[in-house]
Amino acid sequence: MNGPSIKEPILELRNIVFGYRLRKGENIRIFDDLSLDVKYAEFIGIAGPSGCGKSTLIRIMAGLIKPEKGEVLFRGKPLKKPTPRIGIMFQSPALFPWYTVLENVMLALIHEKDLSENDKIERARVFLDMVGLTAFESAYPAELSGGMKARVALARALVSQPDLLLMDEPFSNLDPLTAISLRREVESLWLNQSMPPSSVVMVSHDIEELVELCDRIIVLTKRPAKIAGVVEVDLDRPRQRRSPEFYKYVDEIYTLLS
């Protein structure tokens, strides 16, 4: 295991109930009494059949969606609304086209009243540097490649120095080579204890990606989603995708999914 071993939860979902109401009055239950923990310094993966509510789960963790019943506790306190202490990276980069790369990242510091404008610029630059985009700080999103946009989105998610980073299929829209290098970056950031975040939750339909990055993979069933199983991955990092041990985990997850 990596990181500090304070094995207490940073985020707790307690008995979450959530559903969508269709127009016809029919209720679709997405979660019926779902509970799970994310611990400090943990990299968690969430897998599940498509449509099982993985993205909804990430949004509940971020405080973007309120569950109908149940509780979300962040560092022991109920999470009422989104907080800068939780960073989120969406499936699409969702950058504001009218702001430069630097301005897009600075936007996440909007609540940092103590920071002067210059401090904010400095801080945003540090994180742009981290994702390797220093040279592009005054470019506009339209001028960037898909991979670069994803990097800006990552910098924006991290610039508020969150304890928890949530990622909703962050690499699914990228070409394979870009995805590989970005995965490496996320992993090394998480491993670097002086840098945020402490914990990461990643939703993905790419099982190998999950096994490559995660300490623990929570496999969900189809709607209403329950936990089909939890797979603890005990491999040294960086993990080699071609090893038989790696595939043992992949197969285990596929078995849980089917």
Partner: peptide, 14 residues
Amino acid sequence: IPYEEEEVCKALAM
């Protein structure tokens, strides 16, 4: 307005 942009604003608690 794309939904993602709304969501970003929400996530940043604007």
